[in-house]
Design a binder for these strands. Structure first.
Length: 151
DNA sequence: GCCAACGTTGGC
DNA sequence: GCCAACGTTGGC
């Protein structure tokens, strides 16, 4: 079992949206490192921290899980999509995604400020300066610690 | 293969 | 809205 953190802007797609829909193809990832995590390392059933970025209180708001194997992101082939990639070929897709399913909401938001201040989370990619990854792994120890903050 | 220019992310 | 950080692109 691997643990992950995935960022979403709540104005675009929030935890509420995920709860309403049940599950969602995590489309639009256009960063190779993030793609590689989804393509190479994610397994169905892996747990995911759902993180709200670019909002009043950025932080972890809920838990989701990986609900599919990786498959090509259909938006890369759609010329009308914001995520269209003219350089990606159908027989050799550049971008893949997984489906993400709602699990639960945390009792409270664990804000980025709190995560940054917590010595137990030192070294976590999320709190490193300049980090921009939208999909990243979470250590099992960090996962447990963050869960304990939320109860 | 270097690196300047450019675009994007995302906190503040 | 600003801007630091950083990935990508493209000229050479």
């Amino acid at each position: 079992m691997n643990y992950w953190l995935m960022k979403s802007e709540p104005d675009t797609f929030s935890l509420d949206d995920l709860e309403r829909k049940g599950s969602e193809p995590w489309d639009g990832v256009r960063n190779y490192q993030a793609r590689n995590f989804m393509r190479d390392d994610m397994r169905v059933g892996d747990k995911v921290f759902f993180y709200h970025s670019n909002c009043d209180v950025p932080g972890i708001v809920g838990i989701a899980k990986v609900a599919s194997k990786p498959y090509p992101d259909p938006t890369q082939f759609d010329p009308k999509s914001h995520y269209f990639d003219a350089k990606s070929a159908r027989d050799n897709p550049r971008w893949v995604l997984v489906d993400i399913a709602f699990v639960k909401r945390l009792k409270r938001t664990i804000s980025l400020a709190e995560l940054k201040d917590d010595p137990a989370l030192e070294g976590m990619p999320l709190v490193r300066k300049g980090n921009r990854l939208s999909v990243m792994p979470v250590d099992a120890a960090h996962w447990k610690h963050i869960l304990s903050l939320a109860t």
